[in-house]
Nucleic acid binder design. Structure first.
Lengths: 144, 144
DNA sequence: GGCACATCCGGCATTATGCCGGTTATGCCG
DNA sequence: CGGCATAACCGGCATAATGCCGGATGTGCC
């Protein structure tokens, strides 16, 4: 999975901005034939370098609430906690981080009440030392 | 921009996961003709609801470092700080949040040194009360 | 040299797209 | 009520993109 050359990086940078570009156009930009380009993209997908293609939705949901949950664990790492978190559909992203914190959890819920239930469900796990909730008031910058 | 009905929401949820799906297949899934579906998608794009399509790149290079910078400001809000942050290409996402913190900044740098320079550049701004850095050690969960 | 392997190219049948005319549903107003 | 404008939908045809494959080229190895 470490065999990404300069051409692959060009492909990734183009696809990360214009995921719906036809393979033929992509091929034209990088100076390869269509079939070679397609093969490279397929390889990147199979290797897991490209995980998928997403539409970038601009503030879809006035009703949606985004928040960061900053978790400190009693013992780390904790697969239990990760499994549990994965069970909540509201959980969008979980990152293990260095420092005082242990996990940064990004969530997306339909209501404050949903957020409260989520908090309760998470803090009920043993092995949770501390849970700080920061509701996203505004998304100031978001890139690709 | 507020005229998104149930069908539009279905379209968005599908495209947010499978941005490269052919319009014909999308039409099949939502039970409309291809041309009606295409027209809806075009409208969503023109209205700015769909901002673009991105390939989801999984841990592109081992050389890339992701981190959360947790900022507390002296005075809030601060357009200066946002403008300044926007000037750093390493800055991927900035969210204004409630609570003790003020801003959650997600960054992506090529090296620890780059992270240090970024920290220095940010903490040099007046109006920064506190800056906590949490380097992402691992991405445990990431959804669409 | 001869071989395996990876990468590339081009062509052809199939599939998707862009474009446009035509149909239906709805609301408005004389 | 009838006429009219508008929005949203459908289907068809020419064009463009895709999937699939055989074959060429380059590189390392025995």
């Amino acid at each position: 999975m470490q065999d990404t050359d300069a051409i692959d990086r060009t492909i990734l940078s183009i696809l990360s901005r214009e995921a719906r570009i036809p393979m033929k156009s992509l091929a034209g930009r990088i100076g390869l034939s269509r079939s070679a380009t397609t093969e490279r993209v397929n390889r990147l997908e199979r290797a897991g370098v490209i995980r998928g293609y997403r539409a970038d939705i601009g503030q879809l949901d006035d009703g949606q609430i985004h928040a960061f949950l900053l978790l400190t664990l009693k013992r780390t790492p904790s697969l239990d906690v990760l499994d549990h978190l994965a069970g909540f559909s509201a959980v969008r992203k979980v990152s293990s981080v260095s420092g005082q914190l242990d996990l940064v959890v990004e969530v997306e819920v339909g209501s404050i009440n949903g957020l409260n239930e989520l908090r309760d469900g998470i803090s009920a796990m043993d092995n949770i030392e501390d849970l700080t909730t920061s509701i996203v008031l505004r998304r100031d910058i978001e890139r690709s």
